[in-house]
Design a protein around this nucleic acid. Structure first.
Lengths: 331, 331
DNA sequence: GCGGCTAGTGTAAACGATTACATTTTTTTG
DNA sequence: CAAAAAAATGTAATCGTTTACACTAGCCGC
């Protein structure tokens, strides 16, 4: 493995000069630069990033901490972050917390030890609470979930508005007995619940029920079955993320109910399957590409200038109305 | 940020001793060890992995290079790899090639520069061809796709057998005019095609058509529409991966055809949606957790002992028969 | 009582880059 | 043309570890 010394020797210069050429400094004669670049090519030299990192006390790596990579939302986000990062010559360390605060702590430590330049992070609710006490020398950007300790950069969806819009859509299409399934792992579920309530209130309705449960397919499934076993059955189910939507959909099928005639179903996040099932699912699509890209850009800006005042970017979701919430037939 | 020097000073020993304690060497007096550990705790010292990595010329990072993180198969794999790696104290650098050989090369270089300890890699077909010439000092394990240059560790599905089983299933259920959609980016599609052909041959049938196309939803969609425009329409469609399955399914819906009465559909990989659509999709499920875990273990073994003879692990898929290929009604 | 062991510890040289500072070479200028 | 300024390059310290080697102290056997 050639090192900078080998290059220096071949080019007949000092390592300092090689370093300068590679860093793109302009304080180097054109002819020297050529000699160095030739030597680099000849040896097929590539600088050792570990050494560079140690000496310069920074690295071209960022960490991405998500709560479940199998959630299509986070898959899409990580894809976007990775693309944006690589465009800037950064690589991405991906961490999966499974909504487990202990794993969150573990991974943040690891990322710290790895000297990442920054972290993009979707924290659990438990962690958010401690975030104010968690003072970090590493720049970070929060995505998807609001945290109170507002001295952090954030990229969020306007969840209250989205929840409102989705609920209003249901009501306007004639549904009145609404049940809500909300993820309990983050503020996202709570905010979407706020919008849900607000819409019901504005239309002078009451929610049939509101369930805060772990954001898992299985939980969505079980809870939905349970709803159907109640005497007063909902005519529409609002789910606050795609895993719950999938679980609810499955439960509806297993009970051989018709969507939307027996029960309507709406949720969040565009997935492969949302448009494939029959009927296709009405949902609020999040601009995942934009969220990931914005978060990455915000992070780079903060790395650049650590003391800049924190900013929060709030993006709008887009209602995609489909068959699962079609206007209610008169009964 | 405390360094090993600070710890040494507080404990009243040399940095060498601190290092020995941390490395778990036994050549350290019990009392000294206690003093050092106390100092570590007091300072909340965490060793700098970059420095360690530079000095010891190894790192606790591995690279995972997949062709499309949005493919649920790779999502599941990366999840499994990450879990297995972290159990050993390793972190994972995730790279996305999009089936693009240029990006493959880029990322392999980056991983090399980052001094990863090893790489888990699903190469494109183009790259596989060059793999024999690509001699790397970094241990790596190939997953999902066979490469000819057999001096590499591999973890593969028995794709020929899986293709055979899935095809035989269709035939036994009464379908005779089979069309096959195969991904053209890797050997996977080709191997599954082999099984497809073999089964047809064994049952003395001829394929209606075989299409090798990019493994994208859009391609699956367009190709399927095209099939329906041919005079001789298939009564069953075999797809070699879940993105093609999704595309085909969409095309079938758009043409308002009934599954399986008008046309049956089978594919690969368990996805969230496979069981949700109506009818649910018959498929070969891959043991993703096992593939990821095995690959990671193989990689650690090779890191441990670089000269060991390469081994190939071949795992079996599991046929999950569902409605989309139900026995054909007599016509 | 002395050479040889062993256990425990310290000293200092790596690892491969960057960079402050020093030095040399070239150009400008009065 | 000499002095000053600017440009180009080199020297060597440094980042935070690990580790080969050296060293000390205590103990053993003869």
């Amino acid at each position: 493995m050639p090192s900078i010394k080998d290059v220096a020797q071949i080019a007949g210069v000092s390592t300092a000069t090689v370093s300068r050429v590679l860093a793109g400094s302009d304080r180097v004669k054109e002819e020297t630069r050529r000699r160095v670049l030739n030597a680099v090519k000849e040896l097929n030299y590539r600088p050792n990033l570990v050494a560079r990192s140690l000496r310069s006390q920074k690295s071209a790596r960022i960490g991405l901490v998500v709560s479940d990579i199998r959630n299509p939302f986070f898959t899409a986000i990580s894809r976007a972050v990775e693309d944006a990062a690589y465009e800037q010559g950064y690589s991405v360390l991906l961490c999966n917390t499974d909504e487990d605060p202990a794993r969150e702590e573990l991974y943040l430590n690891i990322l710290h030890d790895e000297s990442v330049a920054g972290i993009i992070f979707s924290p659990t609710q438990q962690f958010s609470a401690r975030l104010s006490t968690f003072k970090s020398d590493i720049p970070f950007v929060i995505i998807d979930r609001a945290v109170n300790a507002a001295q952090a950069d954030m990229v969020l969806l306007d969840n209250v508005a989205a929840g409102y819009e989705l609920t209003a859509h249901l009501i306007q299409n004639g549904y009145t007995k609404l049940a809500g399934l909300f993820g309990n792992a983050s503020t996202t579920g709570r905010d979407r619940n706020k919008g849900f309530r607000k819409a019901l209130e504005d239309f002078q309705l009451k929610p049939l029920t509101e369930q805060f449960i772990p954001p898992r397919i299985q939980q969505g499934y079980e809870t939905t079955l349970m709803l159907f076993d109640q005497p007063n059955r909902p005519d529409a189910i609002f789910t606050s993320n795609s895993l719950l939507t999938a679980g609810a959909f499955q439960a509806i099928r297993d009970r051989r109910l018709k969507v939307p005639d027996d029960v309507a179903l709406v949720g969040f996040d565009e997935t492969t399957w949302g448009a494939l099932v029959d009927p296709p699912i009405t949902l609020i699509a999040q601009p995942t590409e934009e969220i990931g890209r914005t978060a990455t850009e915000l992070l780079f800006q903060r790395i650049e200038e650590p003391s800049r005042s924190p900013r929060t970017v709030i993006l709008k979701g887009k209602l995609i109305a489909r068959g699962s919430s079609a206007p209610r037939a008169n009964k």
